[in-house]
Computed example of a mutant assay.
Amino acid sequence: MTVLTFRTAQESDVPALVALVESAYRGESSRAGWTTEADLLDGRRTDAEGVAEVIRQDASVLLIAEQRGGLVACCQLERRGDAAYFGMFSVRPDLQAAGLGRTVLARAERFAREEWGAARMEMTVIEQRADLIAWYERRGFTRTGEYSPFPYGDERFGVPLHPNLRFEHLTKRL
């Protein structure tokens, strides 16, 4: 694998980040990878305003992974007490299943532990994404048995194609 470089996102990165996140989860382009939500949700995964807000938040960082100067992955970390919330994790669909995600996740965990002193990483995954939950379990995350409802009616999170979507909470000790 070509060397990855990591940096913190700037507002000038917003258009490229929105395109990356959308390509990894929604629409036909997302079907090139295995993280697609296209069978569960339609519409947008995020927008420029949402990504810019994450970048501006004091308790949040949006990490960018680049190869050969091009954006290939990103993830959000948000400080929540002694934990770090992990979200907006996106890998370019044509580069998925090659170990890039594992590398980005490891970097995010190291950042949360070393920069913030976080004791654990927390996240939510759509419960119906059993393959994705299994991927996180192989990386040391555990299922908490806690769930949050999907925000039906709020199209900022997508247009549900199935009833009964909900988020499952996962955690990992750092």
Rank of each mutant, 00 (worst) to 15 (best):
V91D: 05
E109T: 06
T144V: 09
F111R: 09
E49W: 12
T103P: 01
G145E: 11
I64T: 14
R44L: 13
F6L: 11
D154T: 01
S90T: 07
G43A: 03
V72D: 10
S12L: 04
T36R: 04
R7E: 08
I133T: 07
L100C: 03
Q57F: 03
Y136F: 15
R138G: 11
A16H: 14
T103F: 08
A97K: 14
V3P: 13
T144N: 09
W116Q: 00
H162Y: 12
E114Y: 03
F111H: 11
A9D: 10
A112P: 02
R68H: 13
L62R: 01
A84H: 00
E37I: 07
R26K: 12
G158R: 05
G158Y: 01
Y152W: 03
A84N: 05
F6Q: 07
E137S: 08
R138T: 14
E78W: 00
R102N: 12
D154I: 01
Y152A: 12
L100V: 15
A48K: 07
A83F: 00
M123S: 14
C75K: 02
R102Q: 15
D94M: 05
A130Q: 12
A134V: 05
D13T: 03
L17S: 03
A38R: 05
R120I: 00
T5D: 09
R173L: 11
A84S: 04
Q128I: 06
V51G: 01
C75F: 01
L17V: 12
V54R: 13
C75Q: 10
S148P: 01
F111S: 02
Y152H: 04
R102A: 15
F167Y: 10
D154S: 02
D131K: 13
A9Y: 05
D94R: 08
R92K: 15
T171V: 15
E146W: 10
R173K: 15
E11T: 10
P93K: 07
Q96I: 03
Q67H: 05
C74P: 02
E168S: 15
E155Y: 08
P15F: 01
D154W: 01
H162R: 15
E122P: 01
E49N: 12
E146H: 12
F150S: 00
V61H: 02
S30M: 06
G81C: 00
Y152S: 07
E22Y: 09
A59E: 11
S60D: 04
D94E: 15
R143L: 10
R107W: 11
L17H: 03
L165G: 11
T5N: 10
L105P: 02
P93V: 02
E22L: 10
G158I: 06
E11V: 12
E22R: 12
S30E: 02
V3A: 14
R138L: 10
A59I: 00
R79H: 08
Y147P: 08
Q96G: 08
A65W: 02
E122T: 15
F89N: 09
T144M: 13
Q76D: 13
F157Q: 08
F157Y: 13
A16R: 07
Y152T: 06
L71I: 10
L17N: 11
D58H: 13
D13V: 01
V14R: 05
A48R: 06
E66H: 00
V18A: 01
S60G: 03
S60L: 04
L77M: 02
L63W: 11
G27H: 10
G69D: 07
Y152F: 09
E155S: 14
S29M: 14
T124K: 14
I55V: 09
D58T: 14
F141A: 02
